[in-house]
Nucleic acid binder design. Sequence first.
DNA 1: AAGACGGGGGA
DNA 2: TCCCCAGTCTT
Length: 347
Amino acid sequence: MTFQNELINWYQINKRDLPWRHTKDAYIIWLSEIILQQTRVEQGLPYFIKFLENFPTVNDFASATEAQVLKLWQGLGYYSRGRNMHKTAQIVVNNFSGVFPNLHDELLKLTGIGEYTAAAISSFSSGEARAVVDGNVFRVLSRYFGIDTPINSPAGKKQFFTLANELLYQDDPALYNQAIMEFGAMQCKPKSPNCGICPLSQGCFALNHQQVNELPIKIRKAAQRHRYLNYFICQEGNQILVRKRKAGDIWQHLYDFPSIETVNESALNEENFISSVKESFGQNTVFTHLTSRKHILTHQIIHLRFFVLKNYIFNFNKQKELNWVSLDKLDELPQPKVIHDFILEYL
DNA sequence: AAGACGGGGGA
DNA sequence: TCCCCAGTCTT
């Protein structure tokens, strides 16, 4: 049996029953594909269901506010996906009469849709012959064909993309694309793949050369950067001061609190730290430590400290991103996971 | 070509 | 700890 037929055969026996596999509706497939970018099926599935319930059609999605979209997205990470979906939904409504495109070249123009997602939506929705190349495909091809070009190098991406399209099963691109990804996710897993019961073991280069644990090759990224965010909780009766985060940093357009970033874990009684707080919030400012958190992102390790602030002064003309909200409305705002957890525990 | 961008889970 | 996850966008 050919490589392609082995994969398809394996898939038809072992595939999971996932909701987005029962439709060719480009809108629903788009929803699932964006949610599943860099996200495990188990983590994304509840969000897919929630989004489809709240936005049954692309028109419903486009009519929402960005804050409503981000609130639904809260906790899933990579929030630009949510913001880009909102933009794309509005483009589809305004420029495509609400009919979601299902051809590769049209999809690729939309924001948030790259090569992988354009191939996925177009093949699943319209049957277009475009090979998907995601983390699963890199791994399966790298191991089976013994390719040691780093998958995150430009040369590697080109090589794997070319090979994937040569291998694409022309009779049913959608079925083959599903099959190779599912095979990578469930059988040819990153750690301890089930080579003992693998239908492709005989022709697998990595297995036959004891390189299963070495392939695929990936270039290491730079170490994480440490950041120290000091948050200030300002409460007046039922009102609390929040900040909408701006472009150019993490958690764009999500809400947290006024803060001061320091270059290191400055001691609480350090003159330097005290004076910078007073410089920002007035000489009479008093702050007391409430709690601390550590939050780990892909490129940053964030050390958070929370303080209660009293006798402060804010210049709202200069800090337009600050706003008072009542405590009972606080949970309506989209928040970073670590901030949301803090609020649940302390407010 | 390299970095930035979240959060969760497995070994 | 480290790696990976149905990647994309920006610099």
